[in-house]
Computed example of a mutant assay.
Amino acid sequence: MTLLAYDRYCDEIAHQVAELRTVVTSGADLSAKVPTCPDWTLEQLVLHMGGVLRWVEVLVRTRAEEDVRDEDIPRGDGPETTGDAAELDAWLAEAGELVVRALREAGPDAKVWSWAGMLGSGFWARRMTHEITVHRADATLAAGLPYEVAPDVAADAIDEWLQLVGLAGERREMERPLAAGRSLHLHATDTAPESNAEWFVEGTEQGVTWRRGHERADVALRGPLTSLLLAFYRRLPLDGSGLEVLGDRQLLEFWLERATFG
C-alpha cells in the first residue's frame, strides 16, 4: 500500500472544502433530507463536516494526547444563524482554512492522538481527505448535483477503508464481515492497467486481509472507480452507475451490511 504525499492530502482537503461550498451556495434546499444519511438534512450534513474539520484542527494544532472536549472546539457547532447559506458557507470555509493550516504547520510526523491508535498528523490528513470526499458525495446526492473525484483519491479512499475495517475487526468492534476462506474482488474498469485499481479482500481466522491486484474471488464488483468507491461506502446501490456483480452477490451484501470502522 502506497499512501499519497502528505501535501497531496492537504491540497485535496482544501479542494474538497471548496467543492462542498459550491453545493452550499448552489441554491440547494438546506432543509432537504440526505438520501444516504437519512437522519440528516443537507445543512446538518455540512454542520457535521465543518465540525469534524474544526475538531481535527484543535487536535493537530495542540498536539493533543487525548480527545478534546466539544467546548474546546471554537465555533464547532456552526454559525450563529441556521438556514442561512451565506453564513454556513463562510463558517465552512473558515473550518477548511483552519484545518489545512494546522496540518501544513504540523507536517506529516507530528504526534497527535487518534481513535484508531495511529498517533500522527499524517493519519488525520488522510482521514479528513476521505471523510469529506465521501460526505461531499452525500451532499451532491441531496442537492441533485454531479459528483467527481480524482482517481488517485478514490483509490486511496478504498485502501483506507479496507485498512480501517481490518483494524476494527482486530479489535472485535464489529461482527466479522467476511468468513475465513471467503473472498471478494473489486475491479475498476475505467483506469489504466498500471494504476492497479483492483483489490482482493479475504477473510482469515484472524480477520480481514487485503491487497491490490487481480485475483479470482467468490464475488467481484466491477465498474467505474468512483462508483466502486461509493458502492463500497454504501452510497450507491450495487446495480447502479455501471456496476456489475459477478458471483456470490449475497456475500457482497453481507460484507456491505457489516463492514465498518465507525
Score class of each variant (00 low, 15 high):
residue 186 L to P: 08
residue 178 L to W: 04
residue 150 A to G: 00
residue 150 A to F: 00
residue 181 G to C: 11
residue 120 G to N: 10
residue 171 R to N: 13
residue 120 G to V: 04
residue 136 R to P: 01
residue 105 E to A: 15
residue 187 H to Y: 04
residue 152 D to A: 08
residue 168 A to R: 14
residue 174 M to C: 05
residue 141 L to F: 06
residue 152 D to P: 06
residue 122 G to A: 15
residue 171 R to G: 14
residue 147 Y to H: 15
residue 124 W to F: 04
residue 130 H to F: 13
residue 188 A to Q: 10
residue 109 D to I: 00
residue 101 R to Y: 03
residue 182 R to I: 01
residue 140 T to V: 15
residue 143 A to P: 10
residue 153 V to M: 06
residue 155 A to R: 07
residue 179 A to L: 05
residue 148 E to A: 13
residue 129 T to V: 06
residue 141 L to K: 11
residue 101 R to I: 02
residue 174 M to L: 12
residue 128 M to T: 03
residue 137 A to I: 01
residue 148 E to F: 10
residue 178 L to E: 08
residue 146 P to T: 08
residue 156 D to V: 07
residue 123 F to C: 02
residue 121 S to E: 06
residue 178 L to M: 07
residue 127 R to K: 07
residue 134 V to H: 08
residue 186 L to Q: 08
residue 181 G to L: 03
residue 169 G to N: 13
residue 154 A to W: 01
residue 187 H to K: 03
residue 107 G to Q: 00
residue 102 A to T: 12
residue 173 E to T: 06
residue 100 V to A: 11
residue 132 I to E: 05
residue 131 E to K: 06
residue 131 E to A: 07
residue 132 I to R: 05
residue 166 G to L: 03
residue 143 A to Y: 11
residue 122 G to Y: 07
residue 162 L to H: 06
residue 136 R to Q: 03
residue 167 L to G: 07
residue 145 L to Y: 01
residue 176 R to M: 15
residue 163 Q to Y: 08
residue 176 R to N: 15
residue 108 P to R: 02
residue 169 G to L: 13
residue 131 E to G: 04
residue 158 I to W: 04
residue 165 V to A: 03
residue 177 P to V: 07
residue 94 E to R: 12
residue 162 L to F: 10
residue 161 W to R: 05
residue 116 A to R: 02
residue 161 W to L: 14
residue 118 M to E: 15
residue 97 E to L: 12
residue 103 L to A: 02
residue 107 G to L: 00
residue 103 L to G: 02
residue 137 A to R: 11
residue 100 V to N: 07
residue 148 E to Q: 11
residue 133 T to V: 05
residue 123 F to R: 03
residue 144 G to A: 15
residue 123 F to T: 04
residue 136 R to K: 03
residue 127 R to E: 09
residue 146 P to G: 13
residue 162 L to S: 03
residue 128 M to P: 01
residue 112 V to C: 00
residue 115 W to M: 11
residue 111 K to N: 09
residue 101 R to H: 07
residue 145 L to T: 01
residue 170 E to L: 12
residue 156 D to A: 11
residue 110 A to Q: 14
residue 143 A to S: 14
residue 145 L to K: 12
residue 180 A to Q: 12
residue 151 P to R: 13
residue 184 L to T: 11
residue 131 E to S: 03
residue 98 L to K: 13
residue 93 A to I: 00
residue 134 V to C: 06
residue 144 G to N: 09
residue 117 G to P: 10
residue 149 V to Q: 10
residue 98 L to Q: 15
residue 136 R to M: 01
residue 159 D to C: 04
residue 130 H to E: 01
residue 137 A to W: 11
residue 162 L to V: 03
residue 153 V to A: 03
residue 116 A to T: 10
residue 105 E to S: 09
residue 133 T to D: 00
residue 151 P to S: 12
residue 132 I to N: 08
residue 127 R to W: 05
residue 169 G to E: 15
